[in-house]
Amino acid sequence: MDAKSEVLLRQPELFSGNILLVNAPQDQLSQSLDATVSIWSWNFADHQYFLQSGYHSVFDIVPPQQTFDQAIIFIPKAKELLNYVLEHCAAILGQDKPIFLVGEKKAGIEGAAKQLQAFAKPVKIDSARHCQLWQVKAQQQHQVKPLEAWLKHYQYTFKQTHLDICALPGVFSQDHLDIGTQQILPFLAQVKAGKILDFGCGAGIISAILAKSNPKNHITAVDIDAFALHSTQLTFARNNISPQLTTIAITDIRDVDGRFHAIVSNPPFHQGIKTHYQASENLCQFSKALLRSAGELWIVANRFLNYQPFIENSFGHCQIKSDQNGFKVFYANKK
């Protein structure tokens, strides 16, 4: 059982009725509560876990639109994402219904609890297992701001073409172009045209550049995160290239069907506050099966992430196209 769930179960009398669990970990908390539980998750792996466990789970950027008596929020990493989640939960619950906030001290629960002050004075319920549990009851009815109010935008220009990148709360590098992506952008003009897979699409800048640079390119953008997938859709809509895009929620490269002329990725290596390499290592090992003859793999990664042996083991070779600013650009093709 996750430590945060253990803290909740120290106070079982607090939880009853119809409960919305938000961003919950993969454990047995749901079946341990004497309540009717629904899940709101934007992580596709978590969503799949709860579906397979027999629970009502919604994978979306908004919570299920039904009546709840309580909400239990496991704090996300991004402060602005927590503001977004709190506003949606307060709106769907209404006045005087408890919103519980739980998280680890090292993940910033004490700072997160201060964000509850926008709704009422929060109360600390418990502190154990290096975690804290807080509660607040909204003193008035809250309205959800339009999605546009939560969007961050930044501009990118290439070959006299201007792109407007859109990103929702919690999406990697929400308000600026990250250093890793900067390193692979000069090589996108070399990527083989046709059907292209963007693994870990984020806000969609790599996908959008590939689509805008060649109207014949069709991009399949995949990610584990609902906010990332929706951000990519918004980026394509803002730049009038939506017909060139397909988005798919996945947990791993092995969830992808189809054959592609190229796979391009600035792969994630964090889940929450924890470092997680498995998805990226699987990309290196299993992407070859998704490529057509002479298909290409392009990956940019932090220099300390040693993906080269995985790529060489799969493809028989691996070129380092660039090594600067702390990032390497790896290339291989299916011979």
Rank of each mutant, 00 (worst) to 15 (best):
H162Y: 03
H162N: 09
H162Q: 10
L163D: 05
D164G: 04
D164R: 02
D164M: 04
I165N: 00
C166P: 02
A167V: 05
A167W: 02
A167Q: 04
L168N: 07
L168A: 03
L168Q: 08
L168T: 06
P169V: 02
G170C: 08
G170V: 08
G170M: 01
V171F: 11
F172S: 01
F172H: 07
F172M: 06
S173M: 06
S173N: 15
S173I: 09
Q174E: 09
Q174K: 10
Q174L: 06
D175I: 03
D175G: 15
H176K: 15
H176T: 12
L177F: 10
L177W: 02
L177D: 08
D178M: 09
D178C: 09
D178A: 01
I179M: 13
I179Y: 00
G180C: 14
G180E: 04
G180F: 02
G180V: 11
G180P: 04
G180L: 12
G180T: 08
T181E: 12
Q182R: 15
Q182F: 03
Q183F: 03
I184A: 10
I184E: 13
I184C: 10
L185M: 14
L185N: 13
L185E: 14
L185A: 11
L185D: 11
L185V: 15
L185Q: 14
P186K: 01
F187L: 13
L188H: 10
L188A: 13
A189K: 15
Q190I: 01
Q190L: 03
Q190W: 07
Q190A: 02
Q190K: 13
V191N: 05
V191H: 08
V191Q: 11
V191E: 07
K192Y: 02
K192V: 00
A193V: 07
A193F: 00
A193G: 15
G194L: 09
G194S: 06
